[in-house]
Computed example of a mutant assay.
Amino acid sequence: MPADRLDEVLDATYTCLTRYGVRRTTMDDIASAMGVSRSAVYQYVSGKDDAFRQLAGRLHDRALVRARSAAADLDAPCATRVRGVLAAKLDLVLQLSGDSPHTAELLDEQARLFGGICTGFTADLQSLLTALFTEAGTGEAVTPAQAADICIALVVGLESAPDSRRLLDPASDALLAGLLGTSVGTSR
């Protein structure tokens, strides 16, 4: 299956999602958005549910690639690497929340279609952050896994805050200063 055609199907699925939401989107809508027949769409996905699962997977995978890249930047200080991981999560949420009221459905960890993708994404971020805090060391009162959970909670809290992207750096700097037991400055 050519990846570029699957990408077209997923792009069309996203377009339909922004207009109609998951429930109201049909395979005919996806085909129409692509300018092809419904049977042509079925060559790449087994149905609407599959299209939405693959779309959610693609979006979360792209954010995870950004998070892993930030975590792997050994030339950057630990605080910058942690901020990069957190920014990948926040940027995904802001993108999906901003494109349409319907697109945020792809972030629902309770959703039958893609809840596992969302949960897996958060678990992967938690692992990346735990590894960073293990490498950097944390204060005696908190374990690396707890530090990771606290950082994820910070981003979840920022997701609904006005101007949350601007707040990420100062909020994470303040939090990291406490978790790492050192002064942290934004070093982007």
Rank of each mutant, 00 (worst) to 15 (best):
F114N: 00
R112F: 13
D75M: 08
L59G: 01
C16K: 03
A88L: 02
I30C: 00
A177W: 06
A131S: 14
S69W: 10
C118Q: 09
L176C: 08
L96V: 09
T103E: 02
R112P: 05
D7M: 08
R166I: 09
A40G: 06
C16V: 02
R62F: 08
R66K: 15
A145Y: 04
R24I: 02
R62Y: 10
M34G: 05
R38L: 07
S164V: 05
L55M: 08
P101L: 09
R58N: 09
T119P: 02
A88T: 03
L106M: 02
Y20H: 13
Y20K: 14
F52H: 02
L128D: 04
L86C: 05
T15Y: 07
L92V: 04
A131P: 03
R112N: 05
V65S: 07
L125I: 03
G181Y: 11
T80W: 08
G120P: 04
D49R: 13
G181L: 11
A161N: 03
F52L: 05
S69A: 15
S100C: 11
V22T: 11
A40H: 13
L92I: 01
H102Q: 12
L129P: 02
K48Q: 03
D11T: 13
L74C: 09
G116L: 10
Q43R: 14
R188M: 12
D108N: 12
D61A: 15
V142Y: 08
D75G: 15
L90G: 01
P162K: 11
K48S: 04
D73F: 05
D99E: 13
T119E: 10
R81C: 12
P170A: 06
I30F: 01
I117Y: 00
V36W: 09
R23P: 03
L55F: 07
R53M: 11
R188G: 11
